[in-house]
Write a protein that binds this DNA or RNA. Sequence first.
DNA 1: ACCCAGGCATTGG
DNA 2: CCAATGCATGGG
Length: 310
Amino acid sequence: METTLTRAIKPAAPYDFELTAGQPNYSRDQEFKTEDYIDGSYIRLLDLGDKVALARVESTGSVDDPELTIALTGDDLSDGDAERAGRQIAWLLGCDQNLRPFYDAVGDDPVLSEVVEQFYGYHNTRTASVFEALVQAVMGQQIATAVARIVRNLLIQNYGVRASIEGREWYAFPRADALATAEVGDLRQLKLSVRKSEYIRGIAQAALESPDGFEGMHDLPDEEVINRMVALRGVGQWTAQWVLVRALARPDGFPIGDLALRRTVAGLYFDGAEINDAELLEFSHRWSPWRSYATAYLFAALRAGRVAGS
DNA sequence: ACCCAGGCATTGG
DNA sequence: CCAATGCATGGG
């Protein structure tokens, strides 16, 4: 029996819902979607473990007095399900992030203070799980973002959690068990290389062997997380740092080795002059302990076309 | 046609 | 320990 429940959540101010929910995903012209942002509504299929629910999120507040209202549709949803879904949405959309200390800290930074003003209230979005962050990062290694999106959609379409709600097909990211048994030959059909197919399968198997997937990482310090992540085949510094930022919401992750980030910093701070990773790492400490936020805002500036060069 | 893109592991010096 | 290389594919 398809039911609909609603929940309201109060993000930490300032919170710009359109900037935050509308930024990361624009999979237009797809016959399916994992998430969408249309006419002020953020729509996404949530995997609650034993069941799924379609969440439709809208802003019912303002940037400085934010409130989000979630309408949840699924089969036989209980109040407990709605509670879990509300927490998941709050997590995914970074509702708990208090930006003020970061804003204060970059007040003297001529570049970031301007970017922060332009994207006032933009929160960093997150993945639903550590496993998802790892697989997405591996898929995105060394290929253009447009290509990465195509590959990601193929993977989701073939191995993802699927549900038909309100007369339409919706997908959520594949669970580890689905990818742990995937044949490398089949993954190759999804435009993944042999190498990446092996990485992804290995990561899925490692997730299954760990009692709680990789979710125990939430309790470990940054350095310990990095060590464990890098021990996985296919995961290096860049990927591990992205896990800190995207899956664990650590405030001070920094994806050293990221080409676009390096060029963005070079463009904004060094007049376009090339810098290497070591120089970038040293430079990045001016943003500690908020480097995750700094990174998110630098990429926002990049996407908005504020940086010269590709 | 060619080159590169939000890396990583492997190999050869 | 460092540099070069294969990987896969779409867009400029």
